[in-house]
């Protein structure tokens, strides 16, 4: 089984993002970028399936600028066999990313795509589902457990009321939730080895699909701040305030 893992380069999750002063977007220059945490989990799952001899090959793919090569190198150090960059200067929306991936999948013919359920920058939570729809494949989103059977997967999903297990036919797109696994760290020898693994670049233009943005971002701004709160020195004062000021308890 061949597994494709799409990965996105995003602002490191520890950094508080700021809007550009003219409101035209998010200030990213000079800030630490990293692989989207959900994609690390997706990659880890694929690598584990390879270590269990369920998968034969793990391919990491990123759609974006040349700078995304750094997270593809990380993916190689974490156990991907090869990496592909679909290069573009556009800020790709989920539909465009999925179209790029669908083209690549025509060529690579994987049986399984594992991707993060959302990217922590735009929080769209769409790409996996869109990709499954474009390919006519099954999907299993928000996975916290994946079991591979003959030509099916049994996937446990985190849903609002608890857990659901779905039996999906392959090929399939699975999107990962936080509790699927705990990703490993790249070791120095593996980082060295990754430098020799193949990293191919394809221009998005050569795929001949429409990836132009469809959403016009008019303004990126900070949310309205909450009014400052107060410190209370005792449980009694707290109860008093909740009753008489906030009026949220009887």
């Amino acid at each position: 089984m061949k597994i494709l893992v799409p990965v996105k380069r995003v602002l490191d999750y520890n950094i508080k993002p700021r809007a550009k002063s003219d409101g035209s977007g998010v200030e990213l220059s000079g800030l630490k970028m990293a692989m989207n945490p959900f994609d690390e989990i997706a990659l880890e799952e694929a690598v584990r399936l390879k270590e269990k001899n369920v998968a034969t090959e793990v391919i990491a793919v990123s759609c974006g600028q040349v700078s995304s090569q750094d997270i593809l190198r990380t993916a190689l150090a974490l156990g991907a066999d090869r990496a592909i960059l679909i290069e573009t200067d556009y800020d790709l929306e989920p539909l465009a990313v999925a179209k790029c991936l669908a083209k690549l999948i025509d060529k690579e013919q994987p049986n399984l795509v594992i991707c993060g359920k959302q990217a922590i920058d735009d929080d769209s939570n769409q790409t996996g589902q869109i990709l499954a729809a474009l390919l006519g494949w099954s999907q299993a989103t928000f996975a916290s457990k994946i079991e591979v059977t003959q030509d099916h997967l049994d996937v446990t999903r985190e849903i609002d009321g608890g857990l659901e297990t779905v039996h999906v036919s392959l090929p399939s797109v699975v999107t990962t939730d936080l509790r699927l696994n705990e990703p490993r760290f790249a070791t120095l020898p593996n980082i060295m080895k990754a430098k020799k693994k193949p990293l191919e670049t394809i221009s998005a233009q050569s795929l001949q699909i429409d990836i132009a943005p469809r959403i016009r971002v008019l303004k990126v701004r900070e949310p309205d701040p909450r009014p400052a709160g107060i410190k209370v020195d005792s449980v009694d004062t707290l109860i008093e305030k909740l009753k008489t000021d906030a009026k949220v308890i009887g």
Partner: peptide, 28 residues
């Protein structure tokens, strides 16, 4: 194109949605 997690609707073509875990809001 789907718009995810809409928190405000100004009219039929203008929406607001949170990005970066709600640290920022995009008016689109």
């Amino acid at each position: 194109t789907q718009i995810s997690d809409v928190i405000a609707i100004q009219d039929a073509t203008h929406f607001s949605r949170p990005i970066y875990a709600g640290s920022l809001i995009a008016d689109i």
